[in-house]
Design a binder for these strands. Structure first.
Length: 196
DNA sequence: ATCAGGATTGGCT
DNA sequence: GCCAATCCTGATT
């Protein structure tokens, strides 16, 4: 079941926590999917958010309607994928930081050049490579496009490790501004979260 | 026009 | 733990 726009148009921290256990799906020639096991919230008035200094060409998707993908290039090498949340115009989003691979293992392993399951998508740059999430998906709808988010029961009889269960809340990783805000969330007990 | 730096990763010490 | 890779963006001159 693809999540409807109304799912995203709520408090960003609530959406971030509700995204844990959901499926990120990329439908191409071959479909690949992974369960979301780690996220970070970026809020209005948050110095670490790309939207902090107002709308620019790069971050304009963050100010658009919720339920769309904000994809950006980082360090000239990797892409990161966010889900726009909250009210349109708020500039809020949830960064997907780690997935537990679910479908399309062969292709994911080929793209990543490795086969250790816990390292295939345990980082924001790793998971975009695993699911082939490139800049051309920036701005696409997550309920009416090739990149989708499904509810946790989308694969009958299967669940990500640690779900349903406790959600752990910590400070965000890899940022210098507002590094003290506790806006990172992950599934307790999952071996697929990013380390560091 | 120029330039510092980044929501990272993988390899090496 | 340290650092290079790699290039686009936003801020500054």
């Amino acid at each position: 079941m693809i999540l409807p726009p109304s799912f995203y148009e709520r408090d960003t921290v609530t959406v971030a926590k509700d995204l844990l256990g959901c499926l990120l799906v990329h439908r191409e020639e071959t479909t690949t999917m992974g369960w979301i096991v780690e996220v970070e919230a970026y809020l209005r008035g948050d110095p670490a958010a790309h939207s902090y200094r107002g709308e620019t060409k790069r971050n304009s998707v963050m100010f658009g309607p919720p339920g769309h993908a904000y994809v950006y290039l980082i360090y000239g090498l990797h892409t990161c994928v966010n889900i726009v949340t909250g009210s349109e115009g708020a500039g809020e989003a949830v960064l997907i930081r780690a997935l537990e691979p679910a479908i399309g293992l062969d292709l994911i392993q080929e793209r990543r050049g490795m086969n250790d399951p816990v390292s295939l998508a345990s980082g924001p740059g790793k998971l975009t490579q695993a699911l082939d999430i490139t800049m051309d998906l920036n701005g696409t709808s997550l309920y009416n496009g090739p990149l989708q988010v499904g509810s946790p029961d989308s694969l009958p009889g299967r669940r990500p490790e640690g779900f349903p269960g406790e959600i752990v809340q910590t400070t965000r990783i890899g940022i210098t501004k507002a590094a003290d805000l506790p806006l990172r969330f992950y599934l307790k007990g999952s071996r697929y979260v990013s380390r560091r």
